[in-house]
Amino acid sequence: MISTAVFYADTLTYWFSLLHEDFYLFMLAGFIAQMIDGALGMAYGVSASTFLLSFGVPPAAASASIHTSEIFTSGVSGLMHLKFQNVNKKLFKTLLLPGIIGAAAGAFVLSSLEEYNNIIKPVIALYTLYLGVIIIRKALKKKKKVSSGNIPRLATFGGFMDSIGGGGWGPIVSSTLIARGRHPRYTIGTVNLAEFFVALASSITFFAVIGLSHWYVIAGLIAGGVIAAPIAAFLSRRLPVKTMMILVGVMVILISIRIIFKAIMAL
């Protein structure tokens, strides 16, 4: 019995030794990003993307890693939102197919431009900086009822930009729908559930074009995100959303500025 326990302990120690030294850092990033996303219905990809880019992960690999991890985190998060009855089924069906098409198209475009990483990275940082501003603006703006608009077109654009920038599905789709007067609780839950399918489409496209890389980044994001997903879904109706959105927006803006500054200094 003791020898069996020693064997399992040695095996566990061996597998942990194989982990990249930054694995736990990416695990923490996945936990924080999913807590934000599950509670606000946005900013997992934006938070994780700015973090990965700042540590030198190439744009295509960063987006591929984020969307692969989102298959697991958004799956768990979506199920939790279903459990807590936070999903509008009609809205979900409207978002699904356009979001998938947009995500696949964005992943293909980014993968095809991988050789231009030095140019793409600061461009994506400008995009995430813009999303940070959008998040803060949505937090401060008074909500008002307006027309629903073209939801399929919104979903297509959100899916495309999500793949290009490693994030943006939530900030673009959730914040727009909430600003148009939709109930935050059901919007957050529905967009989170649809995100599973958007992330799956994006990941499949990335793998088909560039293959599997940076597995330790993916593993860390998944581990942290899966732990956080049920906690975030439970807390989604209890957290001070406005304050959190402002903090997230400020964080994204600061990290994006850092990436842009480093790119300028490298010229």
Score class of each variant (00 low, 15 high):
144 K>V: 15
84 F>V: 08
212 L>E: 08
132 G>W: 00
233 A>I: 05
187 T>A: 05
175 S>Q: 05
164 I>W: 00
180 R>V: 06
15 W>T: 12
210 I>M: 11
232 A>T: 03
25 L>F: 10
122 P>A: 02
236 S>N: 08
1 M>H: 11
121 K>R: 14
138 K>G: 13
24 Y>E: 14
228 A>G: 03
3 S>M: 09
113 L>S: 12
235 L>N: 08
76 V>A: 09
72 F>W: 05
18 L>P: 10
50 T>Q: 04
230 P>N: 08
183 H>T: 12
45 G>R: 06
108 F>R: 10
49 S>I: 06
21 E>I: 14
46 V>I: 14
81 H>C: 02
204 I>D: 03
2 I>Q: 12
10 D>R: 13
105 A>S: 15
110 L>A: 04
145 K>M: 14
121 K>A: 08
253 I>K: 01
55 F>I: 13
192 N>R: 05
177 L>W: 03
83 K>N: 12
177 L>I: 04
189 G>T: 09
126 L>P: 00
244 M>Q: 02
49 S>C: 12
49 S>R: 02
125 A>P: 01
237 R>W: 08
136 I>R: 06
137 R>H: 15
51 F>S: 00
248 V>M: 04
186 Y>A: 09
12 L>R: 11
69 S>L: 00
261 F>I: 13
167 G>D: 00
234 F>P: 03
175 S>E: 01
66 I>W: 01
134 I>S: 12
202 S>D: 09
144 K>H: 14
223 A>G: 11
180 R>A: 10
110 L>E: 01
134 I>D: 06
20 H>D: 15
188 I>K: 04
178 I>V: 05
72 F>H: 03
167 G>L: 01
144 K>Y: 13
123 V>E: 00
266 A>K: 11
264 I>V: 15
196 F>W: 09
54 S>D: 12
31 F>K: 02
185 R>A: 12
111 S>K: 02
213 S>N: 11
136 I>N: 07
27 M>V: 15
16 F>E: 12
253 I>Q: 01
28 L>P: 03
219 A>C: 11
155 A>C: 11
8 Y>R: 13
172 I>P: 00
51 F>T: 00
205 T>Q: 07
90 K>D: 10
205 T>R: 07
259 I>W: 00
43 A>Q: 03
216 Y>W: 10
75 G>R: 02
224 G>M: 07
114 E>S: 14
165 G>A: 14
188 I>N: 04
229 A>N: 07
165 G>E: 02
159 G>M: 05
183 H>G: 11
250 V>G: 07
205 T>N: 06
242 K>W: 08
21 E>W: 15
42 M>K: 05
92 F>K: 04
80 M>P: 03
19 L>N: 13
148 S>L: 15
222 I>S: 04
186 Y>V: 09
126 L>G: 07
8 Y>W: 14
214 H>I: 05
219 A>G: 06
225 G>Y: 01
52 L>K: 03
91 L>E: 01
146 V>M: 13
209 V>T: 15
181 G>Y: 04
9 A>D: 09
89 K>R: 13
8 Y>P: 09
172 I>V: 11
61 A>S: 10
48 A>L: 01
158 G>D: 06
7 F>E: 11
114 E>D: 14
243 T>N: 13
